[in-house]
Design a protein around this nucleic acid. Structure first.
Lengths: 130, 130
DNA sequence: ATGGGTGCAAAGTGTTTGCAAGTAT
DNA sequence: ATACTTGCAAACACTTTGCACCCAT
């Protein structure tokens, strides 16, 4: 056997699934501590890695700290450089890119990750009023 | 005045411009030490940040450590998950995405970053021979 | 029973920063 | 002369890990 269903792993998975805002590992840690205040950060990180590797959650790379996502389909993200908010991007994953790049480079492509950078409406307004 | 041409900054810029392999800050630090063995890591990091902000070099976000690029036009990258090698991707930057996403989300988009993940030919071969 | 999982704390990585001294303008 | 820069080392933020104990299978 190589995977066990521990109480901690389940709590971490539930925590990710109950949020729509692309939480960081520390966000999850804080949520998880509400349910069981003896879970350690190490356990949260280990389980997030494990769940992401096994495909039960998705891991999103953005500046400062990685985020986690309950969506399993491939999609892009927007990152607000003002406040760090992450949201899903309304453009489809371009599967053809992976084939094109593989064919032209000889790489065996697994996926690509796209992150749009800019200011969310709120931060834009805040920046605008100088 | 807000920008000075120090010997250190010039050496860092030259170091980035003399490489085609998307070096990390530490790679640049090591190169730079060949020319002047008193330059500190802090100075290298500060100058890389400064040069990237002023648009004289480009900064590439990939796992483990950021890289720097002498190319100034927007383009995508490939990252080998086996050896960490970074190369330019042979697909064009999709400017229309930025407009679409801005229009649909209300974000003020500055750019998007795309990184393809996979195995380079060498690592693929190494993995293949099991 | 057995080997993956946990809690804890320490150790890593990569990067930033406070400070006093140095230097480009 | 002024204020941006530097070198140094300490501090940071995020994440991983060694170890002894624990528990799901």
């Amino acid at each position: 056997m190589s995977t066990r269903n521990t109480k901690q792993r389940q709590i971490v998975l539930d925590a990710v699934k109950s949020r729509r805002d692309h939480p960081s590992a520390d966000d999850i840690y804080l949520d998880v501590r509400q349910k069981d205040n003896r879970i350690s950060r190490g356990t949260v990180y280990r389980n997030l890695n494990h769940l992401a590797e096994s495909g039960e959650i998705t891991h999103v790379r953005v500046p400062s700290a990685d985020r986690y996502d309950l969506r399993l389909d491939r999609h892009y993200h927007l990152f607000c450089v003002g406040c760090g908010m992450v949201v899903d991007a309304p453009v489809p994953y371009q599967e053809s890119y992976d084939e094109t790049v593989a064919a032209e480079t000889g790489f065996q492509i697994q996926r690509h990750r796209t992150v749009f950078e800019g200011l969310c409406p709120r931060c834009r307004a805040a920046a605008g009023e100088h």
